[in-house]
């Protein structure tokens, strides 16, 4: 479980807090999507969960953040990293070796996994990401999208209890993005992995996440099931979050009295609802 209580953080070099008065409880095995406009503090929120704040970026830290019972302020980054696997925004700096296989080995070796497990973990993670054929490739020769998949696979291989990913699909095409989100949802469902993703593509979040967190100006504006958050499409638009069009469509029809059912999170739901409307 991740528990954030009255969390406020100000980076040393800035004059005002980047996040303020955050309260959030994420149960084990939940798939949480965080979104919001640029500079809203969503990345900082994930840094608090994987300990990068305050361990790597100094500043004023108020409140408490606990992950799996560890207080991220007191525990060392190494201890936190045994529980939390992190995929950073900048893939080039996330990758520390030169060959795909070595990148997969890096974390596994560090955490001292039994040697007879390592092969299986690498094989599974690469297959899950659909990049088994890249195993012996030189990373510098890969495309941005391929590198992004390698970075994610190298963390999946560690099978952490909590996965924190900062815009993991920025370099991916829509089909690959869907595949990655489907995979993350599967990890949450089948392995009970807690997944926290920062993402701009809200359509992906609403389709896959159990909880949608909307951050605006360093504060949480909404934190609820996607359908309950997306009901407020007009309010969301005002703070720079554009709902999926399928949702907006049905919300508008609802506003004119043509539709009275639940909020639609994706195309499939909207289709079913619309079909009933036009009966």
């Amino acid at each position: 479980m991740i528990e954030i209580k009255d969390f406020t953080f100000r980076y040393r070099e800035s004059s005002s807090p980047v996040v303020e008065g955050i309260n959030l409880v994420i149960p084990d095995g939940a798939f949480v999507g965080i979104t919001g406009s640029a500079g809203s503090g969503k990345s900082t929120l994930t840094y608090a969960m994987n300990g990068i704040v305050p361990h790597c970026y100094p500043g004023d830290f108020f409140g408490s953040v606990t992950v799996g019972g560890l207080d991220t302020c007191e525990a060392s980054l190494t201890d936190i990293s045994r529980i939390v696997g992190s995929v950073c925004q900048d893939i080039d700096s996330q990758i520390v070796t030169s060959i795909v296989e070595d990148e997969m080995l890096y974390g596994l070796e560090n955490f001292g996994f039994a040697h007879d497990q390592i092969e299986g973990r690498i094989g599974r993670a690469l297959a899950d990401m659909g990049i088994a054929d890249l195993r012996s490739r030189v990373i510098a020769s890969l495309s941005g999208g391929q590198k992004q998949k390698v970075a994610i696979a190298s963390i999946l291989a560690l099978e952490p209890k909590v996965l924190v990913l900062d815009e993991p699909t920025a370099e991916l095409d829509p089909a690959s993005s869907l595949q990655v989100f489907g995979l993350l949802a599967r990890y949450a469902r089948e392995h009970g992995t807690t997944v926290v993703v920062v993402e701009q593509k809200i359509a992906l979040l609403s389709q896959f996440a159990d909880m949608l967190v909307i951050v605006d100006g360093g504060k949480i504006r909404f934190a609820d099931a996607p359908a309950d958050v997306l009901a407020y499409s007009e309010e969301l638009l005002e703070i720079g979050v554009n709902c999926p069009r399928a949702t907006t469509l049905m919300n508008r029809l609802a506003a004119t009295g043509l539709y009275a059912g639940p909020v639609c999170r994706d195309v499939e739901e909207a289709c079913r609802a619309l079909s009933e409307v036009i009966l």
Partner: peptide, 25 residues
């Protein structure tokens, strides 16, 4: 920027835990 974030990325993947025995090969 890159070397800075690379150091962080290495650390959150257990850099400090590594010993001579860690190597798989």
């Amino acid at each position: 920027r890159k070397t800075n974030s690379a150091a962080i990325a290495a650390e959150v993947r257990g850099f400090n835990l590594r010993t001579r025995e860690s190597g798989y090969k």
